[in-house]
Design a protein around this nucleic acid. Structure first.
Lengths: 221, 221
DNA sequence: ACCATTAAACTAGCGGTGTAAGTTTTGATG
DNA sequence: CATCAAAACTTACACCGCTAGTTTAATGGT
């Protein structure tokens, strides 16, 4: 079966299928041959469209990052913008948790990741933060969001009561975490993000100049 | 070469060599055959001591976690204990950054990781936090530390001025991040951790009861 | 002292991986 | 109509995690 009348593969189709496959079966199970099979094609055919497997993963990761909303940084104050962005970022990652270990290692050369970093950094500087401080804040928020999506605290515990009860006195309820996974993770995220922003506002007032107050809670957008 | 007079492998030797190999060459380059070669042995011999490759990685990860100091939770107030623990945790992870993507996915059944979770949770509950809140706080701090070690913000940028200057107006200095990697990452971590703890103290005063104040800075221990 | 069992290395090999190389046919271009 | 690039293909290499079976040394029981 040589060149078909109509190409069977496009970059977009490959990325969509790869995303679905990673969502469904996880990163370790994702191979070029399995992706090709899902596309009705032989393995090496992918290399007509992407140079390496990592290039495919980059495209998947950037697709996820591309759904993050940073628009608050041009329309709202830096605190509200940061909170909206962090929640949007978290939603994007938790919608595709299996790609997070790959994505979380840094923006690399991925356009959407770089555009996001650019928007956040630019917004913070515009709000009056010194450039070095803006870098730190963007990084700290990213640490928190990426960490929360990567190491879903609840998911990390095995469902085996016996394991914990015996040796770890305070974790006797830990196996129950799996039941309330989403609420534990979201609660921890909400608490941590509010605390982080609260502390940053105090720092802002001390070093840049007083501004309004922060109310906590879920984002508006 | 059959069974030798003196065993050439022990679990400890395997774990030490694996740790060194991962530190030196990264997770993707780490294979059972390469590890065996470094030990002067054939690949399958490892399976006399570990059931799977993941079991070896678990041992490596738990060795790293085992160096984290949680003793503050029995001797100091919860804020100082949390700060000391977070810094110790971060130091342990940044000393072996290549294992972090594996380690950050959760404690699983690793004894040192479970003992750490137990100590933190227990300390926070003893300090007066309601159990559900203690879970959230432990998780939030872990998100932040793991995220900071995983996605070393600075390391994530490629060293290629051209790449950024053209399309991302605010990132014109981003390639310089690689130069100041350590100081950027540590600065972001210090700022974020202090902000987080500051916000948590406010929350504690509001919901549990007033306590002393927090001064910021590096840990004492 | 002998035997049986277990331990710890080995070799061989299976099915899978990423990807390089070369082939074949189609569609587009001069 | 000749040529060339595109997009699929087949084949193949070196490596991967791991299983199975083999060999010999050390250990424990009678």
């Amino acid at each position: 079966m040589p060149r078909p009348r109509q190409p069977r593969l496009t970059r977009q189709l490959i990325v969509e299928t790869a995303t679905a496959l990673i969502d469904a079966e996880g990163l370790p199970a994702f191979s070029t041959r399995r992706l090709a099979a899902a596309l009705g094609v032989q393995g090496p055919s992918l290399y007509n469209h992407f140079a390496t497997k990592d290039e495919i993963l980059d495209a998947v990761a950037d697709g996820v990052t591309g759904t993050v909303d940073t628009s608050g940084f041009v329309s709202r104050d830096w605190v509200a913008a940061s909170r909206d962005w962090a929640w949007s970022y978290r939603r994007a990652l938790t919608a595709h948790p299996n790609i997070v270990p790959y994505l979380a290692q840094g923006p690399g050369r991925r356009p959407a990741a770089l555009a996001m970093a650019d928007a956040v950094y630019g917004g913070l500087v515009r709000a009056g933060w010194p450039p070095a401080r803006a870098t730190h804040i963007g990084a700290a928020l990213r640490y928190f969001v990426a960490g929360s999506a990567l190491g879903s605290f609840a998911r990390g515990f095995v469902e085996d009561p016996e394991l914990y009860a015996a040796h770890y006195p305070h974790l006797r309820q830990a196996h129950r975490l799996a039941e309330h996974q989403q609420s534990v993770d979201e609660g921890a995220f909400a608490l941590g993000l509010d605390a982080l922003l609260h502390g940053l506002v105090a720092e802002y007032d001390r070093t840049v100049g007083p501004l309004g107050t922060v109310e906590s809670g879920q984002p508006s957008g």
